[in-house]
């Protein structure tokens, strides 16, 4: 079947999709957006977290056909999404930006320039993950970033318990979560300063 939807502000079309494919598979294997990760494919780890019409979901549990006509934001589009948000505009993509994206093209295969090109500066949560040492192997990182960014959007001044609850659907095996806590606290503090 064919599926048309919007990813990171850009219209996408996937052809010859097997009906049992997940949104995660379509993103990774058909659209060249492998940033969302395939750690468990059973909704237990959160590494495939994307925003579907703004809501964080496990993309491994969304059937490809269910996203027809809907908007998806992945880690590849997170920086741009955050930038749009800070401008106060909608998180979508302007026509101008969409055209620039199209002109850049995507070379998913090498992982270069995927989706987010021209690369927006990192979002505050992305930068905080680097600065706080919250990234080790990094396989959980994309999902954590999408979840943490969404939490900070709604709750800019979270308590530690709030952070832990919001990220309780994202497993990390490397860090013991301490540096992830630091990163989210840091991102919240920086966002607070910026306002």
């Amino acid at each position: 079947m064919r599926v048309n939807f919007t990813v990171n502000g850009r219209p996408q079309e996937a052809d010859d999709v097997w009906e049992g494919e997940s949104l995660l598979y379509v993103l990774r294997e058909r659209l060249g957006l492998p940033g969302s990760k395939n750690a468990c494919e059973q909704g237990e780890c959160g590494s495939c977290t994307v925003r579907l019409d703004g809501v964080p979901v496990c993309s491994c549990l969304v059937a490809a056909g269910q996203v027809e006509g809907r908007e998806v934001v992945t880690v590849e589009g997170l920086a741009e999404y955050a930038k749009q948000r800070s401008r106060g505009g909608s998180a979508g993509t302007s026509l101008d930006e969409a055209q620039r994206w199209a002109a850049q093209g995507t070379d998913s295969r090498t992982g270069e320039g995927t989706g987010s090109s021209p690369r927006a500066a990192l979002s505050s949560v992305q930068q905080a993950f680097i600065d706080a040492g919250a990234v080790q192997c990094g396989f959980c990182t994309p999902g954590l970033l999408v979840a943490a960014d969404e939490m900070l959007e709604h709750n800019p001044d979270p308590t530690d318990a709030d952070i832990r609850e919001a990220l309780s659907g994202n497993l990390c095996r490397c860090t013991g979560y301490e540096k992830i806590m630091d990163a989210v606290r840091l991102a919240a503090a920086r966002q607070g300063e910026a306002v």
């Binding site: 049992g20 997940s22 494919e41 909704g43 059937a63 269910q66």
Partner: peptide, 20 residues
């Protein structure tokens, strides 16, 4: 999809039709 997709991803179920 939180039950059905797990079964599909893990090859536990191959329904003839999925009704979205």
């Amino acid at each position: 999809g939180t039950d059905v997709m797990v079964e599909i991803n893990f090859d536990h179920r191959r329904p003839e039709y999925l009704l979205d």
